[in-house]
């Protein structure tokens, strides 16, 4: 049985693990039980600030603190971090390139029962367009832990996209090395490339098993750093496999699919197809039901990969 841990849990644990430095401050907007910053609060109460249901003020106050040599983690649901407080993130954090790390939990449709109002499927697009912003979308608990550590060690604004749902732990904590801005080669096939991020990495690994049963060997690349994106690994994959499928728990507009397409179109044009939320809002339901409804299952990923492979052969 594969171990499952929500990336928000790993985030809370990492804040405690790496949070001993007095420069680190954690802010939350009345969601500390859900974002798991309550773990940090228990360990370091004097450096935890509840900023209330006032995300605009939280983001800008985080910037003000960061200007005083603090490393500030500002946490709330991804919807409000990237949407409600967008202009604060832009003007007060990114423009002056301040040391604020946005720990954005509950991203995507796997939020589940809360429904569309709380399921951001636009945040990668919104955050990656901002100059000075680094955008990370970890695949599992191990990657989340490493991302938090890297964010602490790296100066400047970070957006870390995290989920509510417990997801498979696909990396081994003992030998995992996180390299900011580097894609991870998950499997080395050459028939077609599947580029994925976040929870969709484990879904894609499952899709890969389905494809291999049919004699298709996909190359799977995990892009945990959406920005700056690893161009080299993508260009190499385009050259060697001739077709790329992108998979994300995000709108197909503006997210990973767009970021990959930008690199491929400019450097090595090959067919690209995108799997994601197809320009519509989410809805209430169990995460597993929603994944089926929105086509984010291993089965659908495998179908789309085969379609892409066919169109490549017919060219």
């Amino acid at each position: 049985m594969v171990k499952k841990i929500a990336t928000r849990d790993a985030y809370g644990n990492a804040l405690v693990e790496f949070g001993s430095d007095n420069k680190i401050v954690v802010m939350d907007a009345d969601l500390s039980k859900s974002t798991k910053t309550e773990l940090f609060k228990k360990q370091y109460p004097e450096r935890f600030l509840n900023m209330g249901i006032a995300e605009a003020n939280m983001m800008t106050a985080a910037a003000g603190m960061a200007s005083c040599n603090k490393i500030v983690f500002a946490s709330t649901f991804a919807m409000f971090a990237s949407g409600r407080a967008y202009e604060q993130v832009r003007n007060s954090i990114c423009y002056p390139a301040l040391n604020v790390k946005i720990g954005a939990t509950h991203a995507g449709i796997t939020v589940g029962e809360d429904g569309a109002s709380h399921q951001t499927i636009e945040d990668i697009a919104l955050m990656r367009v901002l100059p000075n912003m680094t955008v990370i979308s970890p695949a599992d608990a191990v990657e989340t832990r490493a991302a938090v550590k890297t964010a602490i060690e790296t100066d400047g604004p970070f957006y870390i996209r995290l989920g509510r749902l417990a997801v498979p732990v696909i990396n081994d904590e003992n030998d995992y090395k996180f390299e900011l801005g580097k894609g991870v080669l998950v499997s080395e096939g050459a028939d077609v490339t599947i580029v994925c991020t976040g929870y969709m990495v484990s879904q894609t690994i499952e899709a890969g098993k389905l494809l291999e049963k049919e004699g298709i060997k996909p190359r799977i690349i995990n892009i945990h750093t959406i920005k700056p994106i690893d161009k080299d690994i993508l260009i190499k994959a385009a050259k060697e496999t001739g077709a790329i499928l992108t998979v994300e728990e995000h709108s197909i507009i503006g997210g990973l699919g767009s970021a990959v397409s930008e690199v491929i179109v400019e450097n090595c044009p090959v067919p690209v197809k995108r799997v994601g939320i197809n320009d519509k809002f989410g809805k209430s339901g169990k995460p597993d039901e929603l994944l089926v409804m929105y086509g984010l299952t291993p089965e659908n990923i495998a179908i789309k990969a085969k379609e892409l492979l066919e169109s490549k052969k017919n060219k």
């Binding site: 605009a56 800008t60 106050a61 003007n91 007060s92």
Partner: peptide, 29 residues
């Protein structure tokens, strides 16, 4: 712009944000 101008403690211009930044500085203090 705090990045460009010596003596500017916070980049401002979008109204309503500067006061929050000042709050953040006071919290840090």
């Amino acid at each position: 712009s705090m990045k460009l101008i010596p003596g500017v403690d916070m980049s401002t211009g979008s109204l309503g944000q500067g006061i929050s930044a000042a709050v953040g500085m006071a919290l840090a203090g």
